[in-house]
Each structure stands twice: as C-alpha cells, then as structure tokens.
Amino acid sequence: MIHILEHTLSHTIEDSVKLLPFLFFTYLLMELLEHTTGGKVQNKIKNAGKVGPLWGGLLGIMPQCGFSAAAASLYAGRVITVGTLLAVFLSTSDEMLPIFISEAVAPATIFKILGAKVCIAIISGFLAELVYVNVFKKKEKDMDIHVVCEEEHCSCEDGVLKSALKHTFKIFIYILLITFMLTFVIELIGEDQLAVVFQDIPVVGEMIAALVGLIPNCASSVVITELYLSGIIGAGAMMSGLLVNAGVGLLVLFRLNRDWKQNVGIMAALYGFGVFWGVIIELLGIVF
C-alpha cells in the first residue's frame, strides 16, 4: 500500500506540474483581456470564434493536456465557443504520441492517426457549433472573463500578474487532488484489470473504449494506446477512446463553468462524437 501511495503521489505531481505553464499563461492572457480590452476588441475575439474549431483542432493535437485545460478556462470566460472547446478536446490525447514514438511506430502511421484526429476534431467542432446555434437556438454569451474570478472567490484588484498567479494556484490544487484520487484508484485496480473491460465487438467496443477514455487521467490513454499496439482492440475502438481523452480539460470545465447542464451536455457530445467516429472507422475497415 505504501508503494502504491508513493507511486501515485509521484505520478500525480509529475503530471500536474506539467500543466502549470499552460494554466499560468492562460490566466495571464485572460487577465490582460479583462483589464485592457474594450468592447470593440472583445467583439473581434468573439467573431473570430466562427473559425475557432479550425484552430482548436490544429492546436489541440499537441501532446500536452495543458491545451485542454487552457481551453476549458477560456470557455468558462466565454473567450472561445463551444465548437472550439470540443475541437480541442477531440484533438488532444494525452500520452498517445509519446507512446507511439517510444514504441517506434512508423512515422507514416503516426501522421495518419494525428491527421484523422485533427480532421475529425475540426469537422465535429463546426458541426457542434452549427447544431448549438441553429438547432438548439442557443446564443453564445458575451465574453465575461470576470466569471472565473467570481467562481474562484478571489479578488482581482491586485493587478494582472498577482491575479493570474492566484487563479493558477487554486486550479492547480484542485487538479492535484482530483488527479491523486483517480491515479490511486487506477493503481489499486491495475491497468491489466482495466484492460479486461475492453471488448473488440463492433459498437460495444467503441462505447466501452470511449467510457474509459473519459477518465481524466493519463493511464486511460496509455491503456488504450497499448491495447491498440498489441492488436487487442481495433482502430475504431482506439480512435473512440483517444478522441474523448481530453486530459484534465473536463475537470477544469466542471470546476469553472457554472452551468452544470451545459457541462454535462458538452461531455455527452464529446462521448457521442467519439463513439460515432470510432464506429465509422470500424465499419469502413480503416487501418492506420
């Protein structure tokens, strides 16, 4: 048990510390926008959100879950749209790329998978934006970065730098605690036992893989990637699990965004897109 606790603590600190630069620069940017921009600049940022899913899909592919955490924070302040947020979530995939590289996977295969994730993320982001605005008749709220201050119960009259540091520290502690609990549970269960829940059955395999992928911990992306490389699951299940694997982005979203129904809707959309695209890939017989 002591060994498990030590191992859990080590991984938790290592994974969480990686997020600090992303969190700090995100909150610093948000504080600068809050303190220095007028209505005209805010409108430009909001209008730029119409092509946000394109940039979200491209930037999210970087092998760092810090982008998903940053995107969740920006969405809570309504700097980016729901389509952009989903594009980042679908594009990012925690430990997938480092594992592929360490396992000496062919560069062509890696680029195909990354390219597929980017294309799926961009298409899904624009589709989500279209449905959100034209079908559900929802309207994106005006940029309100101060909502993050209110949610964190902090005073933001201390200047840009100090306020950004306060936000970074508070959300970092939150991520640290949640990550520790999740990692501890996974360590107790064991990654081998976690792998047993996968079934290489059409649709069912994709649904289970996506559920595992929703776990906001690097272990889920590790398990899914290793199972795919071992030939235990197919390309469809692999893609389903990795598409929904947004790292700690969902944790940050639920922590900062006040609308819990909206948060649940975003998570459901993420899961639905992951399963849908995984099934399509499996039915088409696509092999990377």
Rank of each mutant, 00 (worst) to 15 (best):
K162E: 13
T36Q: 09
M267Q: 08
M62G: 13
I101Q: 10
S102Q: 13
A246L: 12
V88D: 00
A72N: 09
D158I: 13
C218D: 07
H167K: 14
L188K: 14
K112C: 08
A72S: 15
V131R: 05
A121I: 03
M30T: 02
L58E: 02
A237Q: 13
M30N: 01
T183K: 07
I2D: 00
V105C: 06
G236P: 07
V17G: 00
A209F: 10
L97S: 04
V185W: 09
I113R: 14
G247W: 08
L229I: 12
F89I: 06
V223A: 11
F67T: 12
I215R: 05
Y27H: 07
M1Q: 11
L114H: 05
F180W: 00
N263Y: 02
K141W: 03
S230H: 10
Y132A: 07
E34T: 00
I145V: 14
L253P: 07
N134F: 09
A195P: 09
K50D: 05
Y75H: 09
V147N: 11
L32C: 12
P63Y: 08
A268D: 05
L284M: 12
L182K: 04
T8P: 00
F288K: 02
F136S: 06
V248Q: 12
V244F: 03
L182R: 02
P107A: 04
M239P: 05
E150T: 11
F126R: 00
S163R: 11
I266V: 14
N47E: 12
L253M: 10
L270P: 08
L20E: 06
E187D: 14
T109S: 14
A104Q: 13
S221T: 15
Q262L: 12
S102I: 11
E34N: 06
I175W: 00
K137Y: 03
S16Y: 01
N134T: 09
L188D: 10
L251D: 03
I280K: 07
K261M: 10
C156D: 14
S163C: 15
W55P: 01
V279C: 07
L270F: 10
N257G: 00
V105P: 03
G285E: 06
G57Y: 04
E150I: 10
V264D: 05
A219T: 12
S93H: 12
I186K: 02
A76E: 01
